[in-house]
Amino acid sequence: MTKMNLEEYKGVFVYAQQVDNEISSIAFELLGKATELAGKLDTQVTAVLIGSDVKGLTDQLAEYGADRVIVVDDPELKDYRTEPYTHALASVINEYKPEIMLVGATAIGRDLGPRVSARVATGLTADCTVLEIGDFPINPIPGKEQKHNQLLMTRPAFGGNTIATIACPDNRPQMATVRAGVMQKIEPKKGAKAEVIEYNPGFTPNDKYVEILEIVKEVTDVVDIMDAKILVSGGRGVGSAENFKLLEDLAEAIGGTVSCSRAVVDNGWKPKELQVGQTGKTVRPQVYFAIGISGAIQHTAGMEESDIIIAINKDDTAPIFDVADYGIVGDLNKIVPLLTEQIKAAAKK
């Protein structure tokens, strides 16, 4: 790789993903993390906003922590397409030289991130769950320079069986994609303003500009389990789609939302939108009920950050008990309705 002058690269940048001119939640989460990292590096947070007619969104980004917003606004950027968005973000990176560039690990970010990293010739670490500032190598090695103030990017691999911490010591920006629901937003600062810079590198369509023939929105009335404070999650042990009624009653009584494991989706009992885990969503509610869920690592990878985990399972060797704060070995068909009754009774008092 070409030697870069690392000193030229400053600031923590966030790709502020928008879809239909609405900022995606992941952008605010990344701004929260970026604020923390920028504090440690004594530098600024910059949001990069790319789209068509998106200038009105800059104040929102300021409220969630952006000191500066770089807006690339062009009719070619109306809906997400890899090439013009790559051109936009790569041009911003080449012009403004960030030391850190964070992108959401969404269906957009996992396409845009790699394409941009290849264009600007730097490393990219995918699907990070922890981002910290630290030294590389972590422990000094005789005869090797230990670099300070590096972005250390931690991510699961092998279906959640392992975790690795990655650094990008010789190239800039240090790029990472981050899964939705992992980082915390800051409390919005009402009325905050950011410095706004409009930047347009010019867009000339070529063969790399694909044509969008049709956009089909798949509307579901399913709630977003990532926003729920209490999740009542069921697994294969629930037994049938009909038997989820027990969980729905509990969820209603306690003010929670029903979610599920992959087995439940595979059996067609619940839609994919409700799936927690490696191939589903990452959740961190205040309370997570794991009911009839054995707790394979692919599932626990998506929920183990929950504040309190309560597991009910008839198999006392189920691995879910290894991550549960409170584990109950017993029959969910009896325990769940009894618990629902108690919660209802308590609510009446």
Binding site: F136, L152, T162, C168
Partner: peptide
């Protein structure tokens, strides 16, 4: 460009 700082079982 990316280097492993550490890797371990979860």
């Amino acid at each position: 460009p990316t280097k492993i700082a550490k890797a371990s079982d979860k």
